[in-house]
């Protein structure tokens, strides 16, 4: 298994090596040692590849990921898995602000807590957080699923479009146009599959579902006088 030691190898060389390996479609397994909170690690991977990061990462780890699996055996800084297209990103520790922001697809698993703005503007990504998420999570989320085993902070799902939010614990407050919705069999099925994929020990029946009330979708002519 190839090992890239970041105490010896510069970041740009690490990323070039990983990107070439992903493109080669050989589905190799790489290990990155001594990440020490470096920024932009394992970004732009475009093909099947297994990357294990032995430690904590800084800003924007695994951004724009496509098909690859990136496993961080530590915590991740702001913007982990930002704009992910497909593949899997697993964080053993906590994730900082805007984890999975704008993600189009794939699965992001945070085994600890995610802080504020988790899944902001998500566009199809699935995010499973074993712990809690901070305020303004799933702000303007358009598509995909955000699953939170713990609690959610203030203004969950503010200005939400069609993303589905599942929270097992408490929600400090719901954002504008976000409401609790009925949990139907198809939602339980989606949730069951996501929990299994994320290795989460929880039952779908323990969750509540939140989604858009769809009242911000159209201009309300009755409010015209207020502008």
């Amino acid at each position: 298994m190839p090992v890239l030691d970041m105490s010896e190898t510069p970041l740009r060389e690490v990323n070039t090596t990983l990107q070439a390996a992903a493109k080669s479609l050989a589905n190799e397994a790489y290990v990155i040692e001594n990440p020490r909170g470096s920024h932009a690690m394992a970004v732009g991977l475009d093909g099947p590849l297994e990357v294990t990061v032995k430690g904590s990462t800084g800003y924007y780890c695994a951004g724009m990921n496509k098909e690859a699996t990136v496993h961080v055996e530590g915590s991740a800084g702001p913007g982990v898995a930002e704009n992910m297209m497909s593949g899997t990103v697993i964080i053993d520790g906590d994730a900082s602000q805007y984890a999975g922001a704008t993600g189009h697809g794939g699965l992001l698993v945070v085994k600890g807590n995610a802080s504020s703005r988790c899944g902001i503007s998500m566009k199809g990504i699935d995010i499973v957080v074993h712990g809690n998420v901070g305020h303004m999570s799933a702000f303007m989320a358009q598509k995909g699923n955000l699953v939170v085993l713990g609690d959610a902070g203030d203004a969950l799902g503010d200005s939400l479009y069609e993303a589905r939010l599942f929270v097992r614990g408490s929600v400090k407050s719901l954002g504008a146009d976000c409401v609790e919705k009925e949990m139907r069999p198809e939602h339980l099925a989606v949730l069951k599959e996501l929990l299994a994929k994320a290795g989460a020990d929880a039952k779908p029946e323990e969750f509540k579902r939140y989604g858009s009330a769809r009242k911000l979708y159209n201009f309300n002519i009755d409010h015209a006088g207020e502008y």
Binding site: R36, Y59, G77
Partner: peptide, 8 residues
């Protein structure tokens, strides 16, 4: 400000 500052 970042984990990098604490890494050593």
């Amino acid at each position: 400000s970042e984990y990098r500052a604490l890494a050593n």
